[in-house]
Each structure stands twice: as structure tokens, then as C-alpha cells.
């Protein structure tokens, strides 16, 4: 079984974003960029399907292909995936903002060329927080989807996926080929070892362009303004529970 894992390069999750003073966007210059945490979880799961572990038999996946859509530097994100254990990478070079719908169309073209049995990707990227790409890709391919996965059990021609939903947990069966998007508790990604980081440098990365794939990536939405959220003023610090309750009475919430 071949597994395709799309990965996104985003602002490192430990860093706080700054809004440009003129409201034209966020300032990412000189800030550390990393693989989106949900994408990292997706890579880890795919590699476990290949290596065995996390409930998967060794060899359940025969090949793990990572794909990223972004600028040249997205190669680093692909190397990150390769260091975790993906076999090869595909970079679709695109500068500037590529919206989820366009990403899904690019991925559809990659899927048609690569013919994977399973696509695992993060449920959302922590920059635009859209939570759309996997579902859109599933619709464009007319494949079933299991989003927000916290557990994946591969079966004969199907996957049984436990999903994190508002009320608790829901388990669904999806026929393969299928799309699965990852939630936080699917696995804990490994730290790539130095030898694996070195090995990853030798793994192949194919470069493509949206034009090669016949996809128009012009944005549909126009961002008019980017602003800081209204600042919440910190209130008072109190020393005792009695003072706290007095403040709550004052505020009329108890």
C-alpha cells in the first residue's frame, strides 16, 4: 500500500505571530518556520505503517511519499518528513498564498499521478486554521474521508478510524482509497535521529509547478485587512479566595 502525506511549512508553533503595523498581513521575516504539527503527526503515522508500530503491521505501507506546496524553502519541510522516514518527496513550487481549494486541486493532480491507496494529512495548519484541505481533496477525488483521527486500524481494503468529535469519539469505516486527517492524539512524532537526518539529505525530491499540474492557484478570497485582536486587559490579582468571590459578585457573574 502506498501512502501519500502532504505537509505544510508554517511559522514554528512556539512563536507568536506579529501583525504588520500597516495591517497588510503578518510579519514572518526572520522567524523560524517548521513543519505544521498536524502534518508531522501524519508523517509519523504513515512511517509507522511502513516500519510497524502504533498498531500497524510492518510493511502495511510499502512506500511513503511526502508532498509539499510552497516556496523553495518548503524543501526543508520535506527533508523533515524524509528524516522521520518518508521515502521520497515532491515539491510543488508556489510562492505566496495558496488557498486550501487550490492546494486540494494540486494534491488531486499529484494523487492521480502517484495513485496512493491512502492520503494522510493534518486536520488543519496552525497558520490559517482553515481545516479544509483534506475534506476538499476527498470531494475532488470522490473518495471517502475520516477527519480528526485519533486512531487508525488498517483492514482488508478499508481503514477503521476513530475520530475526535464534539460529543466524544466516533468510529467510522472508510473504503480505500481514502483520505484521513490527523488530530493531536493520533501519535507522538519521534525526534529524527542524526543518522536519519543525514540519510534524508540523500533522498530524492521531485520539483513540479502548478502549471505542470494544470492548476490555477489564483486566490478566490481577498484579505482586505489584518489586525491585532482586541487586547484583553488583565484585571486584578487577589490573595485570597474570599477576595476572588467578592470580585465575582461585583462583576455580577455569581
Amino acid at each position: 500500500m502506498k501512502v501519500l502525506v502532504p505537509v505544510k511549512r508554517v511559522l514554528d508553533y512556539n512563536l507568536k505571530v506579529r501583525v504588520k503595523p500597516d495591517g497588510s498581513g503578518v510579519d514572518l521575516s526572520n522567524l523560524k518556520m517548521s513543519i505544521n504539527p498536524f502534518c508531522e503527526i501524519a508523517v509519523e503515522e504513515a512511517v509507522r505503517m511502513k516500519e510497524g508500530g502504533g498498531g500497524h503491521a510492518k510493511g502495511a505501507a510499502s512506500e511513503v511519499v511526502a508532498v509539499s506546496i510552497g516556496p523553495d524553502q518548503a524543501q526543508e519541510t520535506l527533508r523533515n518528513a524524509l528524516a522521520i522516514g518518508a521515502d521520497r518527496g515532491i515539491l510543488v513550487k508556489a510562492d505566496g498564498e495558496v488557498e486550501p481549494l487550490a492546494v486540494a486541486k494540486l494534491l488531486k493532480a499529484v494523487v492521480e499521478a502517484e495513485k496512493p491507496d491512502l492520503v494522510i494529512l493534518g486536520k488543519q495548519a496552525i497558520d490559517d486554521d482553515s481545516n479544509q484541505t483534506g475534506q476538499m481533496l476527498a470531494a475532488l477525488l470522490d473518495w471517502p474521508q475520516a477527519t480528526f483521527a485519533s486512531k487508525i486500524v488498517l483492514g482488508e481494503g478499508k481503514a477503521t478510524v476513530t475520530r475526535e468529535v464534539d460529543g466524544g469519539l466516533q468510529t467510522v469505516d472508510v473504503q480505500l482509497p481514502a483520505i484521513i486527517t490527523t488530530d493531536l492524539r493520533l501519535n507522538e512524532p519521534r525526534y529524527a535521529s542524526l543518522p536519519n537526518i543525514m540519510k534524508a539529505k540523500k533522498k530524492p525530491i521531485d520539483a513540479k509547478t502548478p502549471a505542470d499540474l494544470g492548476v490555477d492557484t489564483a486566490p478566490r478570497l481577498k484579505v482586505v485587512k489584518t489586525a491585532e485582536p482586541p487586547k484583553r486587559q488583565g484585571g486584578v490579582k487577589v490573595k485570597t479566595a474570599a477576595e476572588a468571590v467578592a470580585k465575582l459578585k461585583e462583576a455580577g457573574v455569581i
Partner: peptide
């Protein structure tokens, strides 16, 4: 193209939504 998680409707075609875990708000047409 979908708009996710809007928090305000400014007009029939203009909306506000948070990005970066709510650390920035974008107004989108």
C-alpha cells in the same frame, strides 16, 4: 473557496475570521 470560523459579518460579502490561533484577525472579501 470556503471561509472557516467567521466571527463577524461586516457586509454581505465581507467577513472577519481569526488566524494563528486568534493572534491575528483578517477581514476577508
Amino acid at each position: 473557496m470556503q471561509l472557516s470560523g467567521i466571527i463577524a459579518v461586516e457586509s454581505a460579502d465581507t467577513f472577519v475570521r481569526p488566524i494563528y490561533a486568534g493572534n491575528a484577525l483578517i477581514t476577508v472579501k
